[in-house]
Design a protein around this nucleic acid. Structure first.
Lengths: 360, 360
DNA sequence: TGGAAGTATTCATACTTTTGCACTTGAACA
DNA sequence: TGTTCAAGTGCAAAAGTATGAATACTTCCA
């Protein structure tokens, strides 16, 4: 309705010109003031800021991005926002990003290739300055789309030979090592592992870390004691049923994620057995909920905030470097560690019979 | 580095000019083609689309928003993304928005006024076309910021007299009515309610709905049986402890949200009692997790997808109306209903003693 | 007082797209 | 053949900001 110049009754949408007029300077000076350019004198700067506040002005980000080529938006793609692991991650990522003046664009793929394609496309359209792909799946193919456009990317647990791609390595060994040590200390030697789907990088890394740790501890891992589940509650239930079907059962179970462990908790209860008396259970992730299960879950903590920070740093290094015509060598590998949180789902095994009916 | 004209080896970032050149038309025609203007002939349209695909071109959204004044971004502000209620809501909202060509900006306030201010500001800066404020809290003051800028807003359970503000009413009565009927049918007459904090609109509406339903069912509600909690797991535990401290206890408990109910489940177990034998428990929300508690939680379902749809519709009506110089009257009130989901946390009360030790 | 040497400010252009208006073209009609 | 009209295209001016180059203003010294 009202074009420029018709600043009528409503004080709506002041632009940089309005500010310039009020402060009696040129728009260039206003722009430099806002961007804290050292080329503007104290005196003027003050006058300009005063005008800005008086008008309640803020710059139009679209115009800014258009001319500067920088959107100050970061993308974060997760597998499924409904999985309690991710909201915490997103929250941390948002907090850090906002603190550094970035906006974030969240998208979940639901492990669906089409959705991934769609959100990669949308991020490209919005000209994000970098994308954190924290799906833990094997979506490399689609990532090419991003790489082609020379977009900074950060991946978890997957390495890609491209100068714009950074990697976050999750060091499970510390946490798993502590978990095994904890179980051994309690007297366990028969320790099983409920693995995640072999299509997930993270699941494989976790399983490998477990096997290596057990080897180092000189503990034999029975083949039947490593069971592939699907990282869901139902998967945990199914996994435990497979354990129950065994002649020769483990007395402790480490699960590839907390959700699976909670499924096991449920299944044990339904089978009329008890955790931790009849079976010790350890999860992985330490989602918020782990503290409130029955019994509270002993678990290997994977810090979402550390992960988020690593992802943000990786992206920022790239973005900032790109902005400064950059050719400096930048850090492209980040490490996030894990640790054990002992709660109520682990205890000493019953002495003799290893199949859970010992006490009777 | 490379200004316009230097389209070198790399086929990066084709712009509308590139397309126009390849299709041998003016950029205006390209623009009209993309925006499906009827003024462009079939023949040219085809040629243009071919060029677009060949170049893998997509328009610069920043330039678009700058000139058109429409960002095609919607904001959604939630209280805490870590609360399992919200991710589902966000996921639904995102799905609908993306399907309609909108992008979404998510932000959580963590019930912190500063954070709310900050994210309102950011949304204003990014020129979102509307904001869904689904915090269920009492943040009216800050909303002025949005209203001042003539921003379409949709609120849950709160009415604001502003033509740009729409409201979603949550109809708890259906669900609560069914819940009470279900309990009565099982034989309960002594029904308590664990309310949420009185500072939350939603908590008040829920409590009121409960009281009214009870009145209609001719059931007396003992004052002590309505206890204010804080919608957290710990709140549920604390609430149950207050119930236990009573001489005269209810045999069934309806909780203002699922998290509280899960806290009760835990507290009951710790007290050496059992759900549902010693106490029937009903939640509200039906978060994903409710299905997997021990026992599975009977709860009043509040459909997140319906809520998301209502929020999106409200915003779209406003945005579209604003875009078309609009003066048509638009719908500004939306209703979302609730329903009962019966699972394992409800059963007939024990016959005599109402204090949970009946069986002994 | 004239001018050099900085420093502070403004000018002008660029970023990419949309859109009102003007123009071309060909057909229909007198 | 000349005129009118409509449909289809193109031209050019926005939109709000950033920034290199050019100019105006200091300050200081000879």
């Amino acid at each position: 309705m009202s074009r420029k110049g018709s600043r009528t009754t409503v004080p709506s949408k002041p632009d940089i010109r309005t500010v310039a007029a009020l402060a009696k300077v040129s728009i260039a000076t206003v722009s430099r003031t806002i961007n804290a350019s050292p080329a503007v004198s104290q005196k003027l700067s003050q006058r300009v800021w005063q005008a800005i506040e008086q008008l309640n002005y803020f710059p139009n980000t679209h115009a800014r991005s258009l001319v500067s080529g920088r959107s100050r938006i970061l993308g974060i793609i997760v597998e499924n926002i409904t999985n309690p692991f991710f909201p915490e991650l997103i929250a941390s990522f948002e907090e850090i990003a906002v603190a550094h003046g970035y906006e974030i664009l969240v998208s979940s793929t639901n492990s669906n290739a089409d959705q991934l394609t769609s959100c990669v496309r949308r991020m490209l359209e919005r000209k994000v300055e970098g994308v954190a792909v924290l799906t833990f799946g094997g979506e490399e193919p689609v990532l090419d789309q991003l790489a082609i456009h020379n977009m900074p990317i950060v991946l978890a647990e997957f390495h890609l030979e491209d100068p714009k791609v950074s990697t976050i390595l999750l060091d499970y060994s510390a946490g798993i090592h502590a978990a095994v040590a904890h179980l051994v200390e309690l007297g366990h030697t028969r320790i099983g592992f409920l693995a995640g789907p072999h299509t997930l990088h993270s699941a494989n890394t976790r399983r490998n870390a477990f096997q290596q740790t057990m080897q180092e501890a000189n503990l034999k891992v029975h083949k039947d004691w490593i069971i592939e589940c699907d990282h869901t509650l139902k998967g945990g239930v199914a996994g435990f049923e497979k354990i129950m079907a065994l002649e020769n059962r483990p007395t402790a179970l480490i699960c590839s994620n907390d959700i699976t462990a909670i499924g096991v908790l449920r299944a044990v209860y339904m089978a009329g057995l008890r955790v931790p008396e009849d079976l010790s259970v350890i999860g992985l992730d330490d989602i918020d909920f782990a503290e409130f299960t029955l019994p509270p879950l002993t678990t290997i903590r994977l810090s979402r905030s550390e992960l988020a920070k690593a992802a943000f740093d990786a992206l920022r290094f790239q973005a900032e470097n790109a902005a400064n015509s950059g050719s400096t060598v930048i850090q492209r590998e980040f490490l996030v560690s894990t640790s054990l949180v002992v709660r109520g789902s682990t205890a000493a095994p019953v002495a003799d019979k290893p199949n859970g009916h010992a006490k009777s």
